[in-house]
Design a protein around this nucleic acid. Structure first.
Lengths: 322, 322
DNA sequence: AGCATGCGTTGAAACGTTTCATCGAAGGTG
DNA sequence: CACCTTCGATGAAACGTTTCAACGCATGCT
């Protein structure tokens, strides 16, 4: 592999001059620039990014930390994040935490060693304060700490929207099928928006939330059905929950949407999926991904942030379940 | 950020000694090791991976190049690849090529600059010979060149399997809904396996393949229906095609599986999706991902490969469309 | 006592850049 | 003509590691 030294020798200039040509520094004579470019061409020289990074003490790598990329929402997100990063000359390091706090910590440690320029994450637990001093971090979906910028969908508005759409579809006896409320992802805000709008309209809502991550879905949904007799409308905090509910309910002879209307949240459900699609509150995944990247790059550039949580507008995507 | 120099000074030893302690070199006295570890602890020292990489002229980064991670097959693959890499101490660099040859080339160039340890890819066009001399490469799904190891599913066997399952389900007048045959992904082998098994049983098959990537699905499927009247069984070269066909056909009053049985290929279709699932030939995604990683790491370690194409066994996953 | 042996440690070179103080020549001014 | 600027180019230091030849010091052998 040829290095700058070789280029410099061949072009008959100093090594620093080669550097300036490569970095587009304008204080170079056209003649010299031409000679250097010739030499680069001839030697097929390509700059060694590692050396550059070592010198500059930062890399062109940005990490995206997700629970698992094998989930439509996260893979769609990753896709946009990669695209946006690429357009700014950064590369994407993808890490799966499996939602395990210890794994998350370990990964962040490794990322520090690798001197990534910044970290984008859907975190499962708060990021250590000390890390924040050393690496720019932007959180997605989960506002753990006040001092990390966080990009989310407008969960509160989404919850309200879900309620209004269920009512519009004719449902009157509603249930909320939620997530563990102690994990501060934004599901609680979806719930609160939903409940707030419901109470404004004087509509009763049964809230059903697990106390810990769900292991046995069948048992869980069985319990849900028991506790919500006569229900005719459901808002699920995530599409996946909605889909599982529907599969389970139909086996029990409950028809969707005739007997029960269902609205999910996320917008992951395979568009034009087999036979039916889920009505859902669609998160603005693309905007969230791109915005998170741009915020992170601002941080990397040393600019300060204006606000702390950036909620992005959601839309209702009608399907066949309302 | 403290460096080895600081640690060495604090521990009162030479800088090289610190290096040996960190790398677990056994030729270090327990006493010295202890002193160094104390110093590391005290200074909160973490090795700088960049400097290490520069010196060793390689990184702990492996790139995975996919057309788009926003496709269930690729995101599942990425997930397993990441996990396997992680277990070997490598990190995953994710790149989307968008199936664009120019983009693919550009990315590979950047990866070279970044001195990735190796590249795993679902390539859309042949990788330049010169690159192969410099970086270990393993191809997934598409055996472009004889000199790159390639991990695929056993497409030929998968095609045969599809035929037998369609016949078992009672179909007799079959069609193959395929992909552009000039792109040497392995779809042609699926077709050939399908046709071979069909001719052995003396069953006629209508082959329908686009000449270029499909733009207008409606027009395309319209044409397909016109050219395959009276068909009662379809093998689609990819799940996505199968799903689109079904959605389109049902609008035309064709019932699946009553009128037409359908089998896809990939195994991506959302398990337990809304109401119905696709019958499909499932690729062994996990095995493919892990094997590709292991092959690549062998290459990186300088070992030679035994064979060139590694086909992994597929299974039939029955759904509601046969 | 003299000498080879082996082991643990040292110090410096090297990896390939960027950056900065310095230098030399050309051009403008008094 | 001497002097000050300006501008392009130079050369070396620095980034934080790894690696390797060399070194000093016990130890065991003759």
């Amino acid at each position: 592999m040829p290095s700058m030294k070789d280029v410099a020798k061949l072009a008959g200039v100093a090594i620093g001059t080669v550097s300036r040509v490569i970095n587009g520094n304008p204080t170079v004579t056209d003649e010299v620039r031409w000679k250097v470019q010739q030499a680069i061409e001839q030697l097929q020289y390509v700059p060694n990014e590692m050396a550059r990074n070592l010198k500059k003490q930062t890399s062109n790598l940005v990490a995206l930390l997700v629970p698992t990329v094998w989930h439509p929402f996260f893979s769609e997100l990753a896709s946009y994040v990669e695209e946006e990063l690429d357009s700014w000359g950064y590369k994407l390091l993808l890490c799966n935490s499996g939602s395990k706090p210890w794994k998350e910590k370990q990964i962040i440690g490794l990322l520090e060693q690798n001197k990534v320029a910044g970290i984008l994450g859907i975190f499962s637990n708060p990021v250590e304060e000390s890390v924040l001093h050393r690496i720019p971090v932007v959180s997605i979906d989960r506002p753990f700490r006040a001092n990390i910028p966080c990009v989310t969908s407008d969960n509160h508005a989404g919850g309200k929207l879900a309620l209004h759409e269920l009512v519009k579809a004719g449902a009157r006896r509603l249930a909320y099928l939620g997530s563990v409320p102690t994990v501060p992802n934004e599901c609680v805000r979806r719930r609160d928006g939903f409940l707030e709008a419901a109470s404004q309209l004087g509509i009763p809502v049964t809230v059903f939330e697990p106390e810990e991550p769900i292991g046995d879905w069948n048992a869980y949904l069985e319990r849900f059905l028991d506790q919500t007799p006569g229900i005719d409308g459901i808002f699920a905090s995530q599409d996946e929950k909605a889909i599982r509910y529907i599969a389970f309910a139909e086996k029990r002879g409950i028809r969707v949407p005739e007997d029960v209307k269902v609205i999910g949240y996320d917008g992951i459900a395979f568009e034009g999926g087999l036979r039916a699609s889920l009505s859902t509150i669609r998160q603005p995944v693309e905007e969230m991904g791109r915005m998170a990247v741009r915020l992170l790059l601002q941080r990397i550039a040393g600019e300060s942030m204006e606000e702390k949580v950036y909620p992005l507008p959601v839309v209702y995507r009608p399907g066949d379940t309302t």
